[in-house]
């Protein structure tokens, strides 16, 4: 089994005095694709925000690549090789596609490495190379999501956290985004994905967690959870 890349252990966190997560544990190993599913309000996004440092954990710890990153700020966590793609396909609308990608590499000083990252992103998302000079705000929703992911890849991350990448996209683009995730996994990226689209998220995942009301409810391989009668009844609408 490959080594653990990130482990969040016993996380309790929330906004103000209201706790959202209760003792949540999530783990991802090198090369894995892990999905986190669950209904609205399950704490999926909060779990990601806590791991990256936007929300402070009141207890528990986060270990990334052997280092304890609990309580660090996002600007301290993200340069360590963790990339975070927030919900809502957020791009810099007035900048071109190329400028958006270059911004993604803003911590990188080596021009050759930036070009290399660009090549990899264009290989993964050929449509972005065709739209290079176009303003990001004029792309379609699915293309903007690809750009948001591509921008996160520009820093050579070891782990990519994606929050609801298929949210609000047309069915055609939802499928395209999941194909993309599978493609990224084949290309060797380690991924952790929060998704509402449970069936598709389980189908592409090596392993998955089901959260409910801020607690771990089920976990297992994607295939096992997909076949589990309880998961099926509760989350897959069947």
């Amino acid at each position: 089994m490959t080594p653990t890349l990130l482990r969040a252990e016993g996380l309790t966190a929330g906004y103000g005095k209201m706790p959202i997560l209760h003792d949540v544990t999530l783990e991802v190993r090198v090369g894995e694709m892990v999905s986190v599913i669950g209904p609205n309000g399950a704490g999926k996004s909060t779990a990601f925000k806590t791991m990256v440092g936007f929300v402070h954990a009141t207890s528990g710890r986060v270990v990334f690549d052997g280092q304890d990153i609990t309580g660090l700020r996002p600007d301290q966590v993200l340069p360590r090789g963790l990339a975070y793609v927030p919900q809502g396909r957020i791009v810099f609308p007035e900048m071109t596609v190329l400028e958006n990608l270059e911004m993604g590499a803003y911590i990188e000083r080596d021009g050759a490495r930036i070009r290399e990252s660009l090549e990899r992103v264009y290989a993964l998302f050929p449509v972005l190379s065709q739209r290079m000079g176009q303003k990001a705000g004029t792309l379609s929703g699915g293309e903007q999501q690809m750009l948001a992911i591509g921008r996160a890849l520009m820093t050579h991350p070891e782990l990519i956290l994606l929050d609801e990448p298929s949210l609000g996209l047309s069915p055609k683009f939802v499928s395209l985004i999941f194909d993309t995730l599978a493609e990224m996994k084949r290309a060797g990226y380690t991924l952790m994905v929060v998704e509402q689209n449970a069936a598709k998220a389980l189908a592409v995942a090596d392993r998955a967690y089901v959260l409910e009301l801020g607690r771990n409810r089920f976990e297992g391989t994607g295939a096992a959870l997909l076949a589990d009668p309880d998961v099926k009844r509760l989350y897959l609408g069947g």
């Binding site: 996002p74 600007d75 793609v85 927030p86 809502g88 957020i90 810099f92 609308p93 803003y106 948001a148």
Partner: peptide, 11 residues
């Protein structure tokens, strides 16, 4: 351009 995206990039 987008403050949330800037933060997500670690700024």
């Amino acid at each position: 351009e987008d403050e949330v995206a800037a933060e997500a990039m670690g700024i």
